[in-house]
């Protein structure tokens, strides 16, 4: 690990002031890991984990979750479980109890890819070192994205929480040197395109303060399905967050996002629209799943993800239709 200076932020203002040029440290489960590997080398750390940003608060129209609430706290919160079962399930399917006890909401939003080439200084990676190439393109791609990649990067977005939040159409509230602003969830993570090193729509020094999730009928009838190489404590090969609002035997509104397949959390509005007005049955789910993986580009080791993602989506929609 390289040398760095460490400072514990005394207040949000303190953190924002210290922000530009520094890295915020929350639980450390992504950042410290990558600092040990010397993939990320911040010279200044500003610890924000003790700021008063941990509350989970019900508003008239939604739930506001503090950036520093831990993954365990959010998953266990009664309002989260009642309003957004998909979010609780997604969180509990991620990492391990030990990691979830320290991992925070903002840290999970900004966790880095688990691409083996990104994590290995001896290989080419445009995300880690712009212009150096992408070893994954011709490499071992079992854990790489089939949606949203570019000829510069096909690194998978690894988060489960983010898949649920994408489906629920959360909004991220941030504060920076130029004040406060809201970022719709779908705009927060950037596609790799020509600049895989740019990962988030954050300006230098901007601190995530909270995530707002609007209440919805579909959110209350939502499920998360994750398929992985072992029963627990593994990243997704494919996952799906699905929510359905059903009235008089028809789908009134749908929420659908895929994980384990995209370079960012993969919400598919076209698939959601295709479900509207349909009977909550297998044919409709299969059609939505088909739309959800449209445009996928598979490689040697991940062609299986196409069918796996479709089946995972059908399964999540089926469970959502059945209700909690």
């Amino acid at each position: 690990m390289r040398h760095f200076s460490y400072q514990r932020a005394a207040s949000v203002e303190d953190a924002v002031r210290a922000g530009p040029g520094a890295a915020f440290l929350a639980g450390g489960t992504s950042l410290v890991d990558l600092m040990k590997l010397e993939v990320l080398n911040p010279s200044r750390l500003v610890d924000v984990s003790r700021l008063d940003l941990r509350g989970i608060e019900a508003r008239p129209d939604g739930l506001r979750i503090g950036a520093c609430a831990t993954n365990s706290e959010v998953a266990a919160h009664p309002e989260v479980k009642r309003r957004f079962p998909v979010l609780s399930e997604a969180l509990l399917s991620g990492a391990s109890p030990q990691l979830r006890n320290v991992a925070t909401v903002a840290g999970n939003l900004m966790q880095r890819t688990r691409c083996a080439y990104y994590r290995d200084l001896a290989t080419a990676c445009n995300k880690r070192e712009p212009g150096s190439g992408c070893a994954a393109l011709e490499g071992w791609t079992r854990m790489h994205a089939i949606l949203g990649g570019s000829e510069r990067c096909i690194a998978l977005h690894p988060s489960d929480m983010c898949v649920a939040m994408a489906a629920l159409q959360a909004v991220i509230h941030v504060r920076g040197p130029n004040g406060d602003r809201d970022i719709p969830f779908g705009d927060f993570h950037l596609l790799p395109g020509d600049h895989p090193e740019r990962e988030f729509a954050l300006e230098p020094g901007e601190l995530v303060l909270s995530v707002f999730i609007p209440f919805s009928a579909a959110g209350m009838r939502s499920r998360y399905v994750k398929v992985r190489d072992r029963a627990s404590y593994a990243f997704a090969l494919a996952s799906c967050a699905a929510g359905l609002e059903i009235a008089s035997g028809k789908i009134r509104a749908a929420q659908l996002a895929l994980g384990g397949v995209g370079t960012k959390p993969w919400r598919v509005p076209e698939a959601e629209q295709a479900l509207q007005g349909q009977s909550p049955e297998r044919v409709a789910f299969q059609r939505a799943a088909e739309i959800a993986v449209r445009g996928a580009q598979t490689r040697r080791d991940n062609a299986f993800k196409m069918e796996l993602a479709r089946r995972t989506a059908v399964r999540a929609l089926t469970l959502a239709a059945e209700g909690a």
Binding site: Y6, R8, L25, G27, G28, T29, V32, D33, K36, D47, S49, A95, S96, P97, Q98, L99, N101, V102
Partner: peptide, 26 residues
């Protein structure tokens, strides 16, 4: 040493964590 095995589990204020991914300063 990367949060993948749990051999380093300790309790901090009664909660279990992986001590290999926490800076002591935290």
């Amino acid at each position: 040493d990367m949060g993948q095995c749990g051999a380093c589990t300790v309790l901090v204020d009664g909660q279990r964590i992986d001590s290999c991914l926490a800076l002591a300063l935290q």
